[in-house]
Amino acid sequence: MELIYLLFILMLSIFLGFELISKVPATLHTPLMSGANAISGITLVGAIISAGAIGNDNVTNLLATLAVAFATINVVGGYLVTDRMLAMFKKKTGGGK
């Protein structure tokens, strides 16, 4: 039953994703991708749970720490670079120069 419940959430989120993303204008597609990258860094949650457990052997610790590092790159790098890009998008009045 748990599987059904998780699949239910998955399916609804996909539909929601389609609704949300189809409204993003073409101008913002690059920041959309880097922003989506940052969101997919949510794997960090899983990585932290693995790396933070006690009684792990060394291999588990190594794998989980690497996972934390890669996911953090995604989160930090993704959000910062998206912010840097979005800061450049200016309207004609006010910031045109």
């Binding site: 960090l44 932290i48 749970i49 933070g52 690497l66 996911a71 930090v76 670079v81």
Partner: peptide
Amino acid sequence: IAATLLQVVSFQWIIVGCAVGAIIGFLSA
């Protein structure tokens, strides 16, 4: 992330991983 940190007990590897990832992510961005 904050909510996840509430449920873990050992932090040393998390700190190492996050520090490395944050520095690389910050610099590359």
